[in-house]
Lab assay of single mutants.
Amino acid sequence: MGSVRTNRYSIVSSEEDGMKLATMAVANGFGNGKSKVHTRQQCRSRFVKKDGHCNVQFINVGEKGQRYLADIFTTCVDIRWRWMLVIFCLAFVLSWLFFGCVFWLIALLHGDLDTDYKDDDDKSKVSKACVSEVNSFTAAFLFSIETQTTIGYGFRCVTDECPIAVFMVVFQSIVGCIIDAFIIGAVMAKMAKPKKRNETLVFSHNAVIAMRDGKLCLMWRVGNLRKSHLVEAHVRAQLLKSRITSEGEYIPLDQIDINVGFDSGIDRIFLVSPITIVHEIDEDSPLYDLSKQDIDNADFEIVVILEGMVEATAMTTQCRSSYLANEILWGHRYEPVLFEEKHYYKVDYSRFHKTYEVPNTPLCSARDLAEKKYILSNANSFCYENEVALTSKEEEEDSENGVPESTSTDSPPGIDLHNQASVPLEPRPLRRESEIGSRR
């Protein structure tokens, strides 16, 4: 089982795998120059863009038009607004034209077009017409509009002379109601789609790998820009990579689940303020055997998904993003964004995407760390350097704002901070800030 798991979770494809794949392509008759073999020097295209759209195009789909027309309502909801407006206008105009032609044909076959009612006051002739005051196609078209929109100006009306005319008036009224219901329903469904809710759900630009509770963890940050909550919010993550099976089958995008606390339930989050999602790199993680150097040379993509129900409509929305291997910062942490004021908490989104480097973060893999092949620094050293990194950030910001350097908390000259780390230190809580992250 261990060997199978290692093969499945191998992220960085070796040169031997690339040569094996190329040999397979030639042997199977696919070596026509169009096949692409992804190596370390040639990274694959992003499968999920940063804005959440999937970078996929469908080609050679059989009976595409028929399949889309069979699900016309979903098609109308998914198309762009400009095409929705075109369909909206065409549906009414074509129905008016169709029934206008029908009423014109009825008048033509009944002989109503030969009668001039402007110079004739004989009401008996008017009563013999199928539709009064309809003696041309324009008049028939206007009567069709008046019937379907129930305008009723009063000059044109159907008589009991022709039952077919009466039937067409009733039929057009029913068709008009159906068109109204369909168009209004599609427009309302399109307006109520929770897709735009994703514009106020954000992911951090970069993911980070750092120590948390004595273990290497992959972390990324999510935030909600609205005050309205995302009900039943939960997160998922998958690692996408290519691999070759033991039988020699090439899988271009193998999807591997990344555990973010599904078993323990901590994948469900209360997204009021930005939260750091934590994936513990343990023996079940696809990143277990990867060191910093392996991450730098790897070719994979981590897709992160945030799902929840919109509070206003109770409709489920899904926000997506992805991180390539070069977008994962090893040995970094996110800057705090949640600050405790006197009577409330304040979230500073200008710090949302910012990170700071944490010294002495192990550069080895989580496996080597678990097997004690890498000796961690003293816990006080880690905490102290973590505090120094934050303090230096604040000093830089104070210097930019014009604060005198004498007010900063610099260490005395001639003292090495790293050498001082081995000395037991008193706890130094942050002056006014605390970061709330997901705790395992």
Rank of each mutant, 00 (worst) to 15 (best):
I151A: 09
I87A: 15
R67I: 03
D122F: 03
K195P: 14
E301Q: 03
E394Q: 12
T6L: 12
E249A: 12
D294I: 01
E405N: 10
P427R: 03
A192Y: 08
C162G: 00
V126L: 14
R197T: 12
C157H: 12
H343I: 07
T150G: 14
I436S: 15
V48S: 02
Y334T: 00
A107Q: 04
K215R: 05
V166E: 06
P286H: 01
S173V: 15
Q57S: 12
G152L: 02
I72E: 15
W220P: 01
D122Y: 02
W83Y: 14
A325T: 09
F73E: 14
E394N: 14
D114M: 13
V131W: 02
T23F: 07
K372R: 12
S321G: 13
R80Q: 07
I436R: 10
L21Y: 05
V208H: 00
Q57E: 14
L230P: 08
S392I: 05
F339N: 15
V170Y: 03
L376N: 12
M24L: 11
I179K: 10
Y68N: 11
S144V: 02
W220D: 00
C43N: 13
L230W: 08
S434W: 09
D263S: 10
R243P: 12
P362V: 02
D71V: 06
D120M: 00
A165V: 03
R320H: 11
V403Q: 13
C383E: 15
I209K: 01
R243F: 08
V131K: 02
L239W: 08
I59Y: 13
Q148K: 03
S127F: 12
D416Y: 05
E396L: 06
L230H: 10
V403A: 13
A129R: 05
D160R: 02
G331Y: 01
F58E: 11
E394R: 09
C162Y: 02
I266G: 13
E63N: 15
G185I: 10
E371K: 07
P252K: 15
G154Y: 03
K342M: 03
E307N: 11
P404I: 11
E280H: 10
W330T: 00
E307R: 06
E405T: 11
P359I: 06
A139M: 04
E307C: 11
G2T: 08
D119V: 01
M24K: 11
A314T: 07
V222T: 02
P429Q: 11
R44C: 09
K125P: 11
Y117E: 00
C383R: 14
S434Q: 10
L425I: 13
D416A: 06
L142H: 01
R367N: 01
C217P: 00
L369K: 02
R236V: 09
L240F: 07
N259K: 06
Y288V: 00
Q238D: 02
W104L: 12
Y250S: 15
G2R: 03
T245Q: 14
Q293N: 14
T313C: 10
F137V: 05
M309H: 13
C130R: 03
A25Q: 15
E397S: 13
R226T: 04
V48Y: 10
G214L: 09
S45W: 05
L90C: 08
S291F: 01
M19G: 10
E280Y: 13
K36F: 09
L85M: 06
N419G: 09
K292T: 01
P194Y: 04
V187T: 11
E199V: 06
Q66N: 13
G261I: 08
M211H: 14
N206Q: 12
I164G: 08
Y345S: 04
R333M: 15
A186P: 04
L97Q: 02
T39P: 12
V175L: 14
R320I: 12
V303S: 04
I375K: 12
S246C: 06
S173A: 15
C162V: 01
E161C: 02
I269V: 13
Q318M: 13
I178V: 08
R367W: 01
L94K: 02
P336C: 10
D120E: 00
F382E: 04
A165P: 00
A192W: 09
N378E: 14
G65I: 15
G331A: 06
D78A: 14
L290Q: 03
E133N: 13
P163A: 14
N380G: 08
Q318N: 14
K346Y: 03
G62L: 13
P252T: 14
V37D: 14
Y344Q: 12
E301G: 01
D51V: 03
E307F: 05
V134C: 05
I209L: 05
N32P: 12
N326P: 05
E16A: 08
R212P: 01
Q57F: 06
P413F: 07
P252I: 15
V175A: 07
P286I: 01
D368K: 08
I183F: 11
K118S: 00
L69E: 09
R268D: 07
P336N: 15
N135K: 08
Q66I: 13
Y384L: 15
F203V: 04
F352R: 00
V56C: 13
T138P: 07
L94A: 10
V48Q: 07
L218C: 13
M188C: 13
F300G: 00
I244A: 14
G331Q: 02
L142M: 08
E232M: 07
E385R: 11
V61H: 11
P404Q: 12
S246N: 11
R320Q: 04
C89P: 11
I295Y: 03
V222W: 02
L109V: 13
Q255M: 11
P424K: 08
S3V: 03
Q57L: 04
L69K: 13
H229Y: 03
Y374F: 13
A312T: 03
L69S: 12
E340K: 04
F203Y: 07
A22P: 08
R46S: 01
